[in-house]
Design a protein around this nucleic acid. Sequence first.
RNA 1: GUCCCCAUCGUCUAGAGGCCUAGGACACCUCCCUUUCACGGAGGCGACCGGGGUUCGAAUCCCCGUGGGGACGCCA
Length: 460
Amino acid sequence: MTVRTRFAPSPTGFLHIGGARTALFSWAYARKNKGSFILRIEDTDVARSTPEAVQAILDGMNWLGLDWDEGPFYQMQRMDRYKQVLQQMLDAGNAYHCYSSKEELEALREQQMAQNIKPRYDGRWRPEPGKTLPAIPQGISPVIRFRNPQAGLVSWNDLVKGTISISNEELDDLIIARADGTPTYNFCVVVDDWEMGITQVIRGDDHVNNTPRQINMLMALGAAIPQYAHLSMILGDDGQKLSKRHGAVSVMQYDEDGYLPEAVLNYLARLGWSHGDDEVFSMDQFCAWFDLDHITPSAAQFNTEKLNWLNAHYIKQADAGYLADEVKKRQPALNFESGPELLKVVELYRERANTLNELAAGIVYFYQLPVIDEAAAAKHISPEILPVIHALSDALAMVEWTAAAIHELIQKSVTDHALKFPKLAMPLRVMLTGAGQSPAIDAVMELLGRDEVIRRIRAF
RNA sequence: GUCCCCAUCGUCUAGAGGCCUAGGACACCUCCCUUUCACGGAGGCGACCGGGGUUCGAAUCCCCGUGGGGACGCCA
């Protein structure tokens, strides 16, 4: 059977890191098995769904390069079909109208909680042979409930967690259509997974409890039951649950912060999944290796340090032209025509940066006068060394302008004055770059250019 | 409260009864490289939640604790 997986976010916010990993695994499973990956937007919560959120999710998927084969399908555009199935279930006696008010149900819940039992619908409107239903109240539009089996066990072999069994006694008759007639989440999922021919449902483990209900409905419809794989959640850097107000950020924020999609993808792939000791791999490699057997069932804590390490790795590997473009995008105010070729500067600086933003910030002094770190200046630029540097700058005016020749010249000056190399290199570094750390000073000088180097030295 | 799930270094993980005096990666520490800071290289520190079983043998299987998480919506 051809593998068909899906990613089914609800457009109530951006695509965050947890959703991204769910999408990644679902996508990879389809790619690995030469199947199809379907994108479905679950927008039946009209009050909370927004077109902006849909776009944000699409943007996130695109940035990561998670391409889908079918969709995006929008559940709100499938209303007619849901209503048909709803009617079909009503006709077959698998569903029924319930006239209980929200207040009534709330009271029931509170009463059950007070008795320390699991709150659930008591079936007061559930038709049974020989049972007399309450009189239908006037002016109330009923909801539709699924007639869940009352005995037996629902169990499935979860591809991540192993066998999970839940007794039907734990389940109640869930609402599948609201009073206004719109179907609810669990019902839409069932109809869609069925009709879209989903073979493996890969989703967050907050859905474990929905699974037995969905299986029961699928069975009532005579539909094939897909396999389920429930991914555990991702915790924040501090071990706390991610939430809107705590650590949950859009994947696009990682773009803004200077992370490469390759790094984020590679990091996410290794969060909860492993392939022996392999840590760094491409998405092609990942798709070839990916399996559900090696997914951890336990929750994983996000670790920015490791992401940084991977990001630094991908910056070292990246095409210099790509890095240059990213730097330009991140330094819109700089005039790159006024200094050395950006490609060369990027090559010099790339291995010192963990993020594109660090790279972009690090190369600024090549294109505008640096802000001098006063502490570094005080430490390295002494009155005694100044004449030596000035003499050196005179000599620089006529040396061949290559890093090697410049280095030789500095070395000669060092020898002539019986100094150690840093005695000259450090003050030069501060004068030219503003700070006490930089790439090799001769390489910096070569790129900066003779005129600019002499100008900056003469300012002291 | 009820039900479900989870549990190896600080973190991500390897581990499917003997290959484990538990391996790798990030972080941290030391040394090397060096012109500073990085990069890179070599080392080091560091874990099987507890208790009972099963077995010749358990990180691995079972049970009970403990701890953590999730679900219990006319949200998804």
